[in-house]
Amino acid sequence: MFDTPKREAAVTKTDIKMSARNCQVFYGDNQAIKDVDVDIDDKTVTAFIGPSGCGKSTFLRCLNRMNDTIPICRVEGTITLDGEDIYDPKVDPVQLRAKVGMVFQKPNPFPKSIYDNIAYGPRIHGLARSRAELDDIVEKSLRRGALWDEVKDRLHEPGTGLSGGQQQRLCIARAVATEPEVLLMDEPCSALDPIATAQVEELIDELKQNFSVVIVTHSMQQAARVSQKTAFFHLGNLVEYGETGQIFTNPRDPRTESYITGRIG
């Protein structure tokens, strides 16, 4: 009846998973993030783009309170997960991080076997009641991480022996194994070659069926390829946030246009 494109309708209909209002972040006296308001949709890939030092990684780390580990960092404003304030004193950051997993810029497998790397999260959160169940979780996570076929014969070899791309997929599989609701990825492909990058991007596309994914990236092509929504940060401000297609083809803010066309950043 209506001429609305299907994909757009699907995006606008999804629930809001996380949202930030008036978010400010300070490192000591420096303000790194100013007044950021963002709604992150469920089962969607949201990309944060912007020049280096614009605060996109800082903001990402606010979403699972990783900034708590930096003593001089201070966060103001509200950030909610399913409507609950994650900076509420009653919230345990440890529990929060189990729901909001994170993958880092550089692959950081633990110095343990591939199996133990994946089983780390499920073990500490008590997700498996038996060895067999844990085996299942490991296999499922590695399959989701598109790594199972490559490593199924050497699960008990050290995870640090894998190639860079495999290590990053291992880290993604490790994050997936704890069944998070949101997966944060901080430039997950910046240390990878194009082939490994393509594999990880494919993986992100599959992950969005189950999780809400937030990815920080320096590559605008990558943002355009994998995300449905894009936020452009500049100098600590959220300049523009909207459908990826719209941001890249018809940006409203002149700064966004300059960045996308390569004139700043």
Partner: peptide, 25 residues
């Protein structure tokens, strides 16, 4: 630090991180 971050990012507590990641390393 990346190993600590990795462990915290999976929802491990500080003591779990020390016992299971840092000391083995």
């Amino acid at each position: 630090q990346a190993l600590r971050d990795g462990s915290y990012g999976l929802g491990a507590t500080q003591s779990e991180t020390i016992k299971q990641v840092i000391l083995p390393a």
